[in-house]
């Protein structure tokens, strides 16, 4: 049996197969399916649905960041570091800059994007100049980023009265508004813009065209006269900047401060990456797979609450989906032949 002949939708079919298998294998299927749906979409006035959407916002945002770089054949798996530094920067601007919201919000957003981009560029510099594979360099850079953020909110910028490793809260009037009675904030509009811009640029613009060709084959791009070095860095900068936007939303919309671990433990970055892999580089599918994984996460919490099945079941299912998609789907990453790392 092979999913490959289903072409680019092979991985989606793999997903359905695994999902069915999961439902069949978990004992007490019907009951748990209800718990799952309740956790993901239910609650009073569908409260949980909006929680899922809020989580999906961040996951899809990270997915768009990954999509941009993967599309150019750049295996940037340092989204976590870029996200954390972006979020940290937004929080620091938020608590230190004394300015009206009309100034503060854009300032924090731009600062977060800038720092996210810089961190991605550092990984790029290590590959281009020193030959450290991006996949290794970008990942290694996650650790200092996460630990540095942890240090800042544990020591110099700590909200000491709270007793936790976290920054002070940003001013109430500077926060992104939430939809009434839900945890979903207006950051979702920002992500919708990101999705639209990424997809349109990728398909329609000259830059997107070059980026895709470069992802298919770097030697081809070079001999066609594309400015490959510039495209390389631009792509990484965009990828990092999108991660910065996501960090900004998490701070200004969701937590209203930077809490140590708030962007790492929910695995936003990795879940976003997996959403891209599942969509098999079909860009318009990415928001759907991102939403699916968000629902999987919140649904698993629902099951855990009701039936005491650990929520990490969701992570296991996600991992299996990716493994099966890799084994049965088409090529998931634009990059050269196997073994050319």
């Amino acid at each position: 049996m092979t999913f490959a002949r289903f072409g680019k939708y092979g991985s989606i079919i793999a997903l359905v197969a695994v999902a069915i298998a999961a439902v069949v294998l978990v004992p007490g299927v019907n009951e748990n399916a209800m718990n799952f749906l309740d956790g993901a979409f239910g609650g009073r006035r569908n409260f949980n649905f909006f929680t899922t959407l809020s989580r999906a916002t961040l996951i899809i945002g990270m997915a768009m960041s990954v999509l941009v770089s993967f599309r150019a054949g750049l295996i940037n798996i340092g989204g976590e570091g870029q996200l954390v530094l972006g979020g940290l920067t937004a929080a620091l601007v938020g608590v230190t800059l004394d300015a009206p919201p009309a100034v503060l919000l854009p300032a924090a957003l731009v600062a977060a994007m800038f720092v996210g981009a810089v961190w991605a560029l550092v990984a790029g510099w290590f590959e281009r100049v020193a030959g450290v594979p991006l996949v290794v360099g970008s990942l290694l850079l996650n650790y200092p980023a996460v630990l540095f953020a942890s240090y800042l909110v544990s020591h110099p910028f700590r909200d000491i009265d709270s007793g936790l490793s976290q920054s002070h809260r940003i001013a109430r009037e500077a926060r992104l508004p939430k939809f009434d009675g839900t945890l979903l904030d207006y950051g979702i509009f920002l992500i919708l813009v990101v999705i639209a811009v990424v997809i349109v640029f990728e398909r329609r613009s000259v830059f997107g065209y070059r980026l895709r060709m470069q992802g298919f084959s770097l030697p081809f791009a070079r001999s066609s006269g594309f400015p490959v070095g510039r495209i390389y860095y631009q792509t990484l900068a965009i990828s990092g900047a999108i991660a910065g936007i996501v960090g900004f939303i998490a701070v200004f919309g969701m937590n209203h401060r930077y809490v140590d671990g708030m962007l790492v433990l929910p695995l936003y970055s990795w879940t976003g990456l997996i959403a891209v892999l599942l969509a098999g580089m079909v860009s318009w599918l990415v928001p759907l797979t991102g939403f699916f994984f968000a629902a999987l996460g919140t649904g698993a919490v629902g099951i855990e609450r009701a039936a005491d099945i650990p929520r990490e079941a969701a992570q296991i299912i996600q991992a299996l989906i990716i493994l099966f998609a890799a084994g049965f789907g088409h090529r998931l990453i634009s990059r050269g032949r196997k073994g050319d790392v």
Partner: peptide, 30 residues
């Protein structure tokens, strides 16, 4: 099996395995 037998990309399979390890060890711990 996933990478050599089924021809999956090394990096993708690695990411999947790392994810599986984190999830399944916490799951089994519980």
């Amino acid at each position: 099996w996933f990478s050599i037998r089924r021809g999956g990309d090394d990096i993708v399979v690695s990411i999947g395995m790392n994810f599986l390890a984190i999830g399944s060890t916490i799951f089994m711990l519980r």
